[in-house]
């Protein structure tokens, strides 16, 4: 690990002010950042410790939504009674991710900022446009079982690893930040993550020194909720495919639907065409197949991850049956 300067911030304003120079990173739970620093994939010259900032509360808002402090640990958010009662998909997504030890340390804001990564990103002997821009992508043509099939570019095909962010995407969360130059910014999660394009090392719209302080959830969506994760082993593994969603049915027709996907995309994935294919339709195979067609029309396999495309179709249809109470 390269050495660095360290400072503990006592207020969000001080944290942002302490972010004066290039090479500075905020550290909270540190479970992803330190992992990468040990491999010298991340080499910050200065760490601003934000772990003691008073941003670890969950509060109900008058509109029926929740405001979640960026430092609420993943375990606490998953176990919160209000989250369980109103946002079950979020609780389930969190519980499907990582291990008990990691969830105790990892924070809500940090989860959203974990690096999009693959095995070749970790392998410092391999070319990787994300780790070392311009060197190439070893995953394209390499072992790419876990990689993305949606939103990839010729420069990077890594899938976004978060479960929590998939639920946040389905729930239309908004990030609230404190900007380096002062003042708040509100960023809908739909606009937060960036596709790799030809700059895969840039993963979010967050600017240097900008600090996530809160995540706001609007009131919960109508209908039954689900988070289903399909993976290579039963626990402590990244998703091959995951689905977060809620669907409501009125008078025999799908009245509302929100669906987001993990394991498939280069970022937490949501496509309005999927929901359009469902709304107004009678629950059943024709509508469910049409939704899967809409999701997977732009999908592109890279060899060893081709299986994700049919797997995503079957997983989505299975989830839609569950959400609408439709049998085979």
């Amino acid at each position: 690990m390269r050495t660095f300067d360290y400072a503990r911030a006592d207020t969000p304003e001080a944290a942002v002010a302490g972010f004066a120079q290039t090479g500075t990173r905020f550290i909270a739970g540190g479970t992803n950042l330190l992992d990468l620093m040990k491999l010298q994939i991340e080499t910050p010259t200065r760490l601003v410790d934000i772990s003691r900032l008073p941003l670890a509360d969950i509060e109900e808002r008058e509109d029926g939504g929740l405001t979640i402090g960026a430092l609420v640990p993943n375990s606490d958010l998953a176990a919160d009674k209000r989250v369980i009662a109103k946002y079950e998909m979020l609780s389930r997504a969190l519980l499907a991710g990582a291990s008990g030890q990691l969830r105790n340390k990892a924070t809500t804001g940090g989860n959203l900022l974990q690096r999009t990564r693959c095995n070749y990103f970790y392998d410092t002997a391999a070319p990787c446009n994300k780790r070392a821009p311009g060197t190439g992508c070893a995953a394209i043509g390499g072992f790419n079982r876990i990689m993305a099939v949606l939103g990839t570019s010729d420069h990077c095909i890594a899938s976004h690893p978060s479960d929590m962010a998939v639920a946040m995407r389905a729930l239309d969360a908004t990030l609230v930040t404190l900007r380096a130059e002062g003042g708040q910014r509100r960023i809908p999660i739909a606009e937060f993550h960036l596709p790799p394009g030809d700059t895969p090392h840039i993963e979010t719209v967050l600017q240097p020194g900008e600090l996530i302080t809160h995540i706001e959830l609007p009131p919960p969506p109508a209908g039954r909720q689900i988070y289903r994760k399909v993976r290579d082993r039963a626990s402590y593994a990244f998703a091959l495919v995951s689905v977060a969603g809620a669907v409501s049915v009125e008078d025999g027709r799908i009245a509302s639907a929100t669906l987001a996907f993990g394991g498939l995309g280069v970022m937490p994935w949501r496509d309005p065409a999927v929901e359009r294919a469902l709304i107004g339709q009678a629950p059943g195979s024709p509508a469910f197949e049409a939704a899967a067609d809409a999701l997977l029309a732009p999908a592109k396999g890279h060899g060893s991850n081709d299986f994700k495309i049919p797997l995503a179709r079957r997983t989505l249809i299975s989830c839609l049956r569950h959400l609408t109470g439709t049998s085979l």
């Binding site: 360290y6 540190g30 330190l34 772990s51 008990g100 030890q101 340390k105």
Partner: peptide
């Protein structure tokens, strides 16, 4: 490397002592 910090289990390898 699991230990308890303020009663919560964490991976002690993935955190800095100074924190």
């Amino acid at each position: 490397c699991t230990i308890l910090v303020n009663g919560r289990r964490i991976n002690s390898c993935l955190t800095l002592a100074v924190m």
